[in-house]
Design a protein around this nucleic acid. Structure first.
Lengths: 229, 229
DNA sequence: CATCCAATGTAAAAATGGCGTAAACGCCGC
DNA sequence: GCGGCGTTTACGCCATTTTTACATTGGATG
């Protein structure tokens, strides 16, 4: 296990706070990635191995709860909430949706960093607990965003990766077209199920030993797809 | 999901608060174990498989920090701190010593339970057993949309599956032609009961050991069909 | 008991629409 | 511009559904 700097995504629309948090994280030894919108944030989580997401609930393009729900369908990366709202119902909603910690503004930078350290410490331990899937001659390490086949590391595009991640996170469950579309392409793309066929085909091309007779990425006609380990 | 109740140790010297927290946890579906001293608390963690420790920092026989340091030398069980002290240095010290979360008094019981749920969610391994029906040598897992016979997974088309699902959901009740048609084909298809015969036949072909003498998918002449487990 | 007939079961064509594949297009970063 | 990637368009195949046709059951009736 290499002790590279933890990669932390800071999702916060106010540039001032975003920079303030990022600077603190950098002093802490992390590599902060700044995202001004929820969509940017999700994209950054996909873009590389992510160790922590620091999320402001007040975003312009998506509610924080939606962000958490979306992310949680395909990733277990720790989430620390920053919020101007200190009401108990807000905290409960965020934590129950999948957040790991909730810090109300105004907060001390010392406490923020201590909570960040606690989450990173936990997550590092979880790493050993096997976040990597194996099926056929394919090995997928979702937390490091590495997929390899027969020992040979292979490249997946963002959509290919997100599609695979959603399917792995729901192994052996049937996922409807609509559900997959909304998880991978975002809300509002519930209909055009044709995209799915194209990317499922590409995944099969890259992962299945015989793409014509898929063993793991199975189609449930008229319903959706299912991943079989 | 019917997993065992999480075992939670409540280490708190004031009996009133201890009982208050324990009651809340019990309502939450946990099994609280009460400990009035740090030593008792450590003993209880040793005594059985523990899912969470809720710890008050103000203990008579040992400082909370020492408790955490001691526990962390041999256990990685999640620790949630309750404390009357809300100073930032106290939080930082506890979190850095090995605690996972820190809640300052006074706290809302809703937030406490939400944070407990968040920690337990992280800790437990996924053992979500889905409700599945069984009859003869057939096994049907409706939530995963998988039906198998004699251990061999078999494929059902959409109509076959929906028909089976409706019958399973109303076991041993008589379902009229009209009712089945409307459940499977949707409103407006109440009449053409002939479709039913075709698909009932296919289900029997796939599920019954002797399709000529069905044991489970029974016909109620003139009325409809009935599923017998 | 034989017969009839309506309901039910079986089998096989025909039509529908979902699915997979390929290729062209457009966008954007390098 | 070039290459990678997401999007769009086009098309053939085939599973599934629907239609059609025919055999069988079983109970009522005379």
């Amino acid at each position: 296990m290499s002790d590279a700097k933890p990669r932390v995504i800071v999702v916060e629309d106010e540039p001032q706070i975003r920079r303030f948090v990022s600077d603190a994280l950098r002093r802490e030894g992390c590599t902060p990635i700044q995202a001004g919108t929820a969509q940017q944030g999700l994209d950054e989580v996909v873009a590389g191995k992510t160790d922590l997401v620091v999320l402001d609930l007040g975003l312009p393009d998506m509610s924080g709860i939606e962000f958490i729900r979306d992310l949680r369908t395909w990733s277990r990366v720790p989430i620390l909430i920053l919020s101007a709202r200190s009401g108990e119902q807000d905290k409960i909603a965020a934590l129950d949706t999948g957040a790991d910690d909730y810090l109300a503004k105004p907060f001390g930078v010392g406490e923020l960093l201590a909570r960040v350290r606690a989450l990173l410490r936990r997550h590092r331990e979880d790493d050993d607990a096997s976040p990597h899937h194996r099926f056929g001659d394919v090995e997928a390490d979702l937390s490091r965003r590495i997929v390899s086949r027969a020992g040979q590391e292979l490249h997946l595009t963002q959509i290919e990766y997100r599609l695979l991640a959603v399917m792995l996170a729901n192994s052996s469950k049937v996922l409807t077209h609509r559900h997959l579309m909304q998880e991978v392409w975002g809300p509002g793309h519930g209909e055009q199920a044709h995209y799915l066929r194209i990317y499922v085909a590409r995944l099969r091309q890259k992962l299945e030993s015989d793409p014509t007779q898929p063993q793991h990425i199975l189609t449930e006609t008229g319903v959706g797809y299912r991943f079989q380990p």
